[in-house]
Computed example of a mutant assay.
Amino acid sequence: MIELRVGDLPAEVWPSPKDNIPERRRADLHDDLWELVRDGFAPIADVVDDADVEKFLLGAEVGIYLFEQGRCRAVFMVDAIELAAGRVLYLALAAVHSSLRGSGFYLPMVLLRMALGRAWHCTWWATRTANPIVAETFGRFDPYPWRDDRASQAAAAELGAELRARFSVGDTPAPHEFDVRTGVLTAAYPIALYDSLPAGGGPRVRDHFARHLELERGDALLLLGPLDDAIDQLAPRCDELLGRPFPSLLDSLASLHPEP
């Protein structure tokens, strides 16, 4: 486990958290993780159990846990996915307590995860979201589906198929389909994550959501872009955002290798 600070907040970075976080520590986190689910994804809180919460908030190659006054108030799951188009840094589930939203820590957490991608020699970064605020944040890196780039489209098509396989149940494929023209994963989630569309996002994002996504169906938007483009924007701000130069951050993450 690696300890970092994000602004004034301590963070723990765990490789394979479900396997490596000690049982006592997981018990200490239990109530905080449930509170994150209830606070951020109220519609699903009544249909998940402890096993689901552990899968969502502990089941990744790396988990980043951000604390405020001793309570876990944000969790970010990170995986690496091997594609023919290159290794993808997949920014999986993110859960953020309402007490931290708008406090300026989110961009530093984007940088921290992108740095993991650089340490893992990824070609791409990608995430899926039903939240226009998240889409707007990552939209600053000019990602697919908005960039006119055949390589990005090909990587997104391959990743869309891989995500369908990963979220299958036994031998049954996940119900979602992927539209490479729009980047929409239909029925990506088994239930709508939000009672209403979160306010925020610029005109491009809001228009794309309005025209192509049906949130009540559980749709999500797949975003994907070259990792180097994001790093080029964020690395010069590493001192400002995370209190250390980018090479120092990479050194601290060097021991966190994805599974081959």
Rank of each mutant, 00 (worst) to 15 (best):
L36H: 00
V37S: 11
V37M: 14
R38N: 14
R38V: 11
D39Q: 08
D39M: 12
G40L: 04
F41N: 08
F41A: 08
F41H: 07
A42G: 06
I44F: 11
A45P: 03
D46S: 14
D46K: 15
D46E: 15
A51H: 14
V53T: 05
V53K: 12
E54G: 11
E54H: 08
F56V: 15
L58H: 09
L58V: 12
G59W: 06
G59H: 08
I64W: 02
I64L: 06
Y65A: 01
F67K: 02
E68L: 14
G70D: 05
G70A: 02
R73E: 06
A74E: 05
A74D: 02
V75G: 02
F76H: 07
F76Q: 10
F76P: 06
V78N: 13
V78M: 09
D79W: 03
A80N: 10
A80C: 14
I81K: 02
I81E: 04
I81S: 05
L83S: 04
L83C: 07
G86M: 10
G86I: 08
V88L: 05
L89S: 04
L89C: 08
L89V: 10
L91S: 10
L91G: 06
A92W: 07
A95C: 11
V96C: 00
V96I: 07
H97F: 07
S98Q: 07
S98T: 11
S98K: 09
S99T: 13
L100Y: 06
R101S: 10
R101M: 06
G102Q: 05
S103Y: 14
G104Q: 00
F105I: 13
Y106P: 05
V110N: 01
L112Q: 05
A115V: 05
G117R: 05
A119T: 10
W120N: 11
W120S: 08
W120L: 12
W120H: 15
H121Y: 07
H121P: 09
H121L: 09
C122Y: 09
T123E: 15
W125A: 03
A126C: 02
T127V: 11
R128D: 15
T129I: 06
A130G: 15
N131F: 01
P132M: 01
P132A: 04
P132V: 05
I133V: 13
V134Y: 02
T137D: 05
T137M: 12
T137I: 12
G139N: 07
R140G: 00
R140V: 10
D142P: 00
D142Y: 11
P143V: 04
P143C: 03
Y144V: 01
Y144M: 08
W146F: 12
W146G: 01
W146C: 03
W146K: 01
D149E: 07
D149S: 02
R150K: 14
R150C: 08
R150I: 10
A151W: 01
S152D: 03
S152V: 01
A155N: 00
A155Q: 03
A156I: 00
A157G: 09
A157Y: 02
A161E: 15
E162G: 00
E162D: 08
A165Q: 14
A165K: 14
R166M: 11
F167Q: 14
S168K: 12
G170L: 14
G170I: 13
G170D: 13
P173D: 15
P173Q: 13
A174H: 15
P175K: 10
H176A: 13
H176L: 13
F178T: 09
F178C: 12
D179K: 10
R181Y: 01
R181S: 10
R181M: 05
